[in-house]
Design a protein around this nucleic acid. Structure first.
Lengths: 222, 222
DNA sequence: TATTGCTTTACGGTTTCCCGTAAGGAAAAT
DNA sequence: ATTTTCCTTACGGGAAACCGTAAAGCAATA
């Protein structure tokens, strides 16, 4: 039972054009699209009020800021907001993100129905995903399934991220306890800071803080 | 004088579709496309041999690896290889990259003719870029021009980049002289390393190495 | 209340880093 | 050849980070 009404939230105009074209090729005629998260939520709520709801939301994860200030920042927040008003809409995420932990979270915590990565054969993958979801299955491409399985990445929590952020801003390690107290983050002792840094370095097989900063920058953690 | 023959090197199928569509809308009918760098170079050389050369290459920067092992890795290498066989072809880079240093390098060192970022209004930007380049102008969108202009007060040279790379890989500062000697980079003394680090931190108003690593990651310097 | 187990904090010794100063060395100028 | 200048290297004292261990806090349990 193919979808009838689809909403596309994607800020790259070129990519949005392609998604529309692909949808069209599947014979879905009632398609709306937007370049902004706030608009996407607005269209969803409006369609509910009009008693003509969307069946599927195809959304990117990263949206760039511009002059139009948004309340909703990024695809994750959008999915949460949409789920809050329209719990049963199917959601297909279409993004370049390929970090196992992040994708795993999308399925487990946000309950998305499919994930297609912007990559070499994304057009065919997108069609397959829409097809699968319309038949009440979930979709995740084979290569990503493997990556998700072997996710042995360290889970950074708020304390970890705060510590590394402070370091990357030039705060002396011995002064970090003061900053943590200001933010009411516990534990805040210098030894705890040292312990956490050692845990992170141990888990990732690093020896220096500089490596942690580089790693967190690479993976968008800070 | 609009282009007649255009080659598209772009590994994301969806994005490639959109680029083709955009080109078509400009009235350019002789278009070839490929998902691989090696194929792109091959098509360029073949067109030269056939005495029917391409006028314009539109290429992405990042290409993902897959089962087809490539000699040319990424858009930068592709541009260098293409320039080597066909010096006068116009080159338009179409990428998500928004690091000032990287984009600046593309124009100054690789001599590209235009840069369009994959972003909100990329379709209209791509058309404008092709239009501009066909009139022997270069193209860089206004927002990126600003970023490139106000780029770093400090010019990182090979020594700087090597030092910061080593730090970000976990090498102890006191061991850096050894690594520099292995790479035959001079000066290599520990004091010189310290001096350089201080120069960089002074110029950027930083106090710790962690800040330098974060900065260089942000601007794509390492 | 006392015990147990766990987490957080405090402390001291060692290593590394930081920073100023002085010595060494090469190239240019006289 | 000598001086000047600039850059590189060496060294040493003090600050910060690193690391192990011990003490203190705290919650759960009996």
């Amino acid at each position: 039972m193919m979808f009838k009404k689809v909403l596309i939230a994607e800020d790259q105009e070129m990519m949005s054009i392609s998604v529309r074209k692909t949808i069209e090729e599947l014979g879905i005629t009632c398609t709306k699209y937007t370049y902004y998260c706030d608009d996407a939520l607005m269209l969803i709520t409006k369609s509910l009020n009009d008693d003509d709801p969307f069946d599927l939301l195809i959304t990117d994860l990263s949206f760039e800021e511009d002059h139009r200030k948004q309340k909703i920042n990024g695809g994750i927040e959008l999915i949460q907001a949409v789920k809050a008003v329209h719990a049963h809409i199917k959601i297909l995420v279409f993004s370049v993100e390929n970090k196992a932990a992040a994708i795993d979270m999308l399925f487990k915590e946000l309950g998305i129905n499919g994930y297609v990565r912007k990559a070499r054969h994304d057009a065919i993958a997108l069609k397959a995903a829409i097809e699968a979801i319309s038949n009440n299955r979930t979709y995740l491409s084979a290569d990503l399934k493997q990556i998700v399985k072997q996710k042995n990445t360290y889970e950074f929590d708020a304390l970890d991220i705060t510590i590394i952020s402070l370091l990357s801003q030039g705060v002396l390690q011995k002064n970090i306890p003061y900053h943590l107290q200001e933010k009411s983050i516990r534990p805040s002792g210098l030894s705890s800071v040292e312990k956490r840094l050692n845990q992170m370095k141990e888990a990732l097989d690093f020896s220096k803080n500089e490596q942690l900063v580089a790693y967190c920058k690479d993976y968008g953690i800070i």
